[in-house]
Amino acid sequence: MSELNHTYLEALQMARWERPDIAALKRTAEGSWLLESHSMTARLKRHCHDFDVDVIAVYQLTPDKLTDGEIALIGQEACVVREVVLKGDGRPWLCARTLMPASTLEGQGGHLHALGTEPLGQHVFKQRASRRDAIETANVACLSHQLHARRSRLWLHNRPMLVAELFLPDSPVYGKEIPA
């Protein structure tokens, strides 16, 4: 793993998550990004010609390594962790860390641990039985930048996953929105 990716993941794991004031957040430039309820992948793809996923790591995490906040959102069980960087036109835009509980990977979710470079959101939001809730936000200091982050719970076939996302300095969240 590159030193830069390690720094981003460390910053993401140090985030102090809070439930946002949704009405106030909606009035900010970044609010629509942080409150996005559908696929972040689809939204990011609208801002580039080439979209790539760099898989940093996929590994097992035992239940005793989960934080209290993670346990409150997905339960206390072993997880597969998937850490990636999403890139638009070769620029790193988003660092993400997904916790997929063992029970989510059973049955219809069994293919999730083998996504490779397929974006998780692209896959999840193709399914009719998917949704996002429990959005939390944070501002994270990283490499002399104040970066936006969000954490949300994704449901696939009524089974949870937890996705934490750090919007990197070149991310379109910090610029003007391209109309759909």
Rank of each mutant, 00 (worst) to 15 (best):
R43L: 14
A78T: 13
R153L: 01
L94Y: 02
P160K: 03
K45M: 15
M100S: 03
L156C: 09
V84A: 05
V84W: 01
L143D: 15
G88R: 00
A164N: 10
H49I: 13
G31Q: 08
S32A: 08
M100T: 03
K87Q: 08
G116K: 01
L99V: 03
L115N: 03
R46K: 13
V53F: 06
V80T: 14
V124R: 09
L94R: 02
L115K: 01
W93Y: 02
K126Q: 15
Q60N: 12
V163W: 05
V53N: 10
V80D: 03
T62K: 15
A164D: 14
T137H: 08
I135G: 04
H113E: 09
T67F: 00
T137M: 09
A134Q: 14
I135W: 02
T98H: 02
H111R: 01
L61F: 03
F51K: 05
L99G: 04
T137L: 08
V124C: 11
A164G: 09
D64Q: 15
G107L: 04
C142G: 08
Q76F: 02
T28S: 14
D52I: 04
E136C: 09
R27Y: 06
P63V: 01
L25P: 11
P160I: 01
C79D: 05
P160L: 02
M161A: 09
R159L: 14
H38L: 11
H145T: 02
A149Q: 04
E83K: 05
G69N: 13
A164P: 03
K126Y: 12
